[in-house]
Design a protein around this nucleic acid. Structure first.
Length: 311
DNA sequence: CCCCAGGCGGTTG
DNA sequence: CAACCGCCTGGG
């Protein structure tokens, strides 16, 4: 077992990593993780292409497609196993995707100290282990357009059928089947151009309903460069939100979700029906998310997650 | 039959 | 400019 790295004391990453093999696939084992709970991460509604793996060798395992690849994340205690990943994949892709380069202990402390209402501390404790995934930008834009006036099982179903309809097929590594939920088809999430070439009619035929023309407009704007992903990363959250809202069917809530989950804008604060309930019921003294600062979006996830389970 | 689901666009007053 | 209202579809 090779020990590849153990991080310096100056940064947030004080975990260990070693490589191994699971069912014939390369895997890395990350040890000593804190503030990391795979079940909360994939069950807090930020991501639609991962499912729980039944009969797993881990306490909890989720698998799915991200960045055009099959990957599975298994966690037992403070140890995370990333299946179908080399150490290079971990450093180049999954470390950032999983938010392991972000200091959640510090962020949680910042959030709690920035807000007088003790409810925020309660939620931060309850949601301990949540990480905001750094997902693919276009995928989050498109997925959260689909999410509007919709429920999570159906959102996931629609994202899958859209991928199967026009996404690039993925070749599964040998041994992946037992880590892939039944019926899950291995397709990459389609590019804006692949979605645009589908056309409104075939988007509608996928049962996307009134969202078909919204998805199409987004695909057009992203594939033509009217909206440029790289430039959004350079913008302030407010500017980026304004730009995304030029797409038909993208309003404040959808834009904020895409910015938080796909563009690493951690101050984006999506206000959905759950957060509206939080504001009315738990913050009778008034509420301004901007007082939560640069990590308001992470606070939002804590509030949201708590309300969904205890509301 | 009803209502609702992590909203949004269009129309009203 | 705030307050409605209809919307594709599927499940309860």
């Amino acid at each position: 077992m090779n020990v590849f790295s153990s991080c310096c004391s100056a940064c947030a990453e004080n975990y260990s990593i070693r490589s191994t093999e699971i069912d014939g696939m390369p895997a890395v084992v990350i040890g000593g993780l804190t503030q990391f709970d795979i079940s909360k991460i994939f069950d807090c509604g930020q991501c639609f292409r991962f499912d729980v793996v039944e009969n797993s060798m881990f306490d909890c395992e989720f698998s799915g497609i991200a960045f055009g690849r099959f990957v599975a994340f298994g966690q037992t205690g403070g140890e995370l196993t990333i299946i179908n990943s080399t150490p290079e994949d971990f450093y180049g892709l999954w470390r950032h995707y999983l938010g392991l380069d972000i200091d959640y202990d510090k962020i949680r402390a910042d959030i709690i100290s920035s807000c007088e209402n003790p409810h925020i501390a309660l939620c931060a404790e309850f949601g301990s282990g949540i990480r905001i995934l750094a997902q693919e930008p276009w995928e989050t834009v498109c997925s959260f357009i689909i999410s509007q006036n919709n429920n999570i099982p159906r959102i996931k179903k629609l994202v899958e059928s859209l991928s199967a309809e026009c996404g690039t097929p993925i070749s599964l590594p040998k041994g992946a089947e037992k880590h892939l939920s039944q019926g899950k088809r291995p397709y990459a999430f389609p590019t804006p151009n692949q979605v645009m070439e589908l056309g409104v009619d075939r988007l509608f035929a996928l049962k996307t309903g009134f969202r078909a023309k919204y998805i199409y407009d987004a695909a057009q704007k992203f594939s033509s460069g009217v909206i440029d992903i790289d430039s959004i990363f350079e913008m302030s959250t407010a500017e980026a939100c304004e730009l995304l809202c030029t797409v038909k069917g993208i309003g404040n809530k959808v834009a904020s979700c895409a910015l938080l989950f796909g563009f690493e804008k951690y101050d984006a604060f999506p206000v959905d029906v759950w957060i509206k309930r939080v504001i009315t019921n738990r913050f009778e003294e008034g509420f301004d998310f901007r007082s939560l600062g640069q990590y308001a979006g992470i606070a939002q996830q804590y509030l949201f997650y708590y309300e969904r389970y205890n509301g």
